[in-house]
Design a binder for these strands. Structure first.
Length: 433
DNA sequence: TCTGGGGTCCTAGGACCC
DNA sequence: TCTGGGGTCCTAGGACCC
């Protein structure tokens, strides 16, 4: 039996812990650059604000409906997520942190009343961290996801599902007919793995709810769509196809991409930007003890500025030998950038991807010429990482990322950011007796 | 004026190879 | 008259997830 613990309106819930005045008010958390709404409180959803709504389109609601918008504070969310994950680890013998606000837990060997256990877990997370959550259970990951969806909807949208499923919903103990009734109540688009395109294609074939989807012939689904959707159909029928990954595999690629706070035209500013992105990506790479064999750089104009000339190019640069050395990665990224840069465009976004990753320990040996010396084996980078952990990010950086004190035209906007309450001494909240 | 970031998997066309 | 088959690599794009 699989359980999914999903934290409600997670980013908003994190902000409310430290600013209780936000309770019961419409609140959204904005993406980087204060671009669009990526988290919404129930009250904000009730105002009709859609996931991903651009801030400039909903800004009026701040005046007319008391909407509060906050810039995203990932240091806070990541820390709160870790705290919750450590509690969820006690829920069952094996768990998988699926995203910043979701964990799967394998309850197969757990005896007793799982619903009672789920309610208890939910209560503990709320009491110990202040974050509300819902828990779904079922024989497969897809059904646990569905159960979670039912638990949330039954709590928030009266009439959508029977109220006894609210907050904690266990599909694994229901009689067949009752489960089918719930599937029939669920639009196909609410099923994990069914996005916009598939929803439209399924609807063309008359498939609009989860029960119809579950009753399709898996072989036909594979032929007409893909092995991915076939797995979804099988999982809806209780056949587990997606395993729990309790030790997350290393990344196959590592990306760092950003939209700019304002348009960038000059090569020099782009060099600074991609140098910084490569530096950040390199830190992630060294954290997973990996080496990159090639790097990709891309730059693009804004697809939303239709009137302006559009340009979008990417270049992949292979490395002589796989490396995790920031200097070599930055150098390669700049080579790539120069090969695709064109003056005269308003660039809105750039990014760096580290590709063909491999673990340090399987490094390919090589024949050396007699006077050739192997490059630095990472001691400099280890020291760099340690200094930046101990004395703070950006204590030591590469010069090509631009001087830290300089105003970098490409830096992102963050006009409504809250303090790093839990990860910076100076930002720690004071409690008055 | 103003539209996110980080992933995985899959497909497809063109260049090139034997 | 009549012009193959199998493969890799690169680039680009699209689907899905959170």
């Amino acid at each position: 039996m699989m359980a999914l613990v999903d934290l409600n309106n997670f980013y908003v819930s994190c902000e409310r812990i430290f600013r209780p005045s936000l309770n019961a008010r419409p609140v959204v958390v904005l993406s980087n650059n204060d671009g669009c709404a990526v988290a919404r409180s129930d009250e904000a959803k009730a105002l009709g604000i859609k996931m991903g709504a651009p801030w400039f389109e909903i800004r009026d609601l701040a005046q007319t409906a008391g909407l509060v918008a906050l810039s995203s504070n990932y240091a806070l969310y990541a820390d709160m997520s870790d705290r919750v994950a450590s509690l969820v680890a006690g829920f069952g013998p094996q768990h998988e942190v699926y995203s910043i606000d979701e964990s799967f837990v394998d309850l197969t060997s757990v005896r007793g009343d799982l619903v009672a256990r789920g309610l208890h877990m939910r209560e503990r997370i709320l009491r110990w961290t202040g974050i509300p959550s819902c828990i779904g259970m079922g024989p497969t990951k897809t059904l646990a996801k569905l159960a979670n969806h039912i638990a949330k909807s039954a709590e928030r949208k009266p009439g959508s599902y029977p109220t006894h499923h609210a907050r904690v919903c266990h599909l694994g103990v229901l009689p067949k007919l009752e489960l089918e009734a719930l599937l029939a109540l669920t639009p196909a688009s609410d099923i994990w793995g069914v996005g916009r395109q598939l929803t439209a294609q399924l609807a063309d074939g008359g498939i609009t709810n989860a029960l119809q989807l579950a009753r399709l012939d898996p072989a036909l689904v594979r032929r007409k769509w893909s092995v991915v959707l076939e797995r979804t159909v099988l999982e809806l029928n209780g056949l587990a196809c997606i395993a729990l990954e309790d030790a997350p595999p290393n990344k196959q690629e590592i990306a760092c991409t950003r939209s700019f706070g304002q348009p960038v035209t000059e090569l020099q500013a782009l060099i600074e930007a991609v140098s910084e992105f490569a530096s950040r990506a390199a830190i992630k790479l060294r954290k997973q003890n990996g080496l990159a064999s090639s790097v990709q750089t891309f730059i693009r104009t804004s697809p939303f500025r239709r009137g302006q000339p559009q340009y979008s190019r990417a270049a992949t640069v292979p490395l002589h030998r796989p490396t995790a050395d920031t200097r070599q990665l930055v150098a390669a990224v700049i080579v790539g950038l120069k090969s695709i840069y064109q003056p005269g465009y308003n660039f809105a976004k750039a990014g760096v991807m580290l590709l063909d990753l491999q673990p340090v320990h399987v490094q390919q040996g090589e024949l050396l010429l007699e006077d050739e010396v192997l490059p630095d084996q990472g001691h400099l980078m280890q020291t760099l990482d340690r200094l930046n952990v101990r004395f703070g990010k950006k204590t030591v950086v590469l010069g090509s990322t631009g001087l830290p004190a300089a105003t970098r035209s490409w830096d992102m906007r963050q006009d409504h950011r809250t303090p790093h309450y839990t990860t910076r001494w100076a930002d720690m909240p004071l409690v008055r007796a």
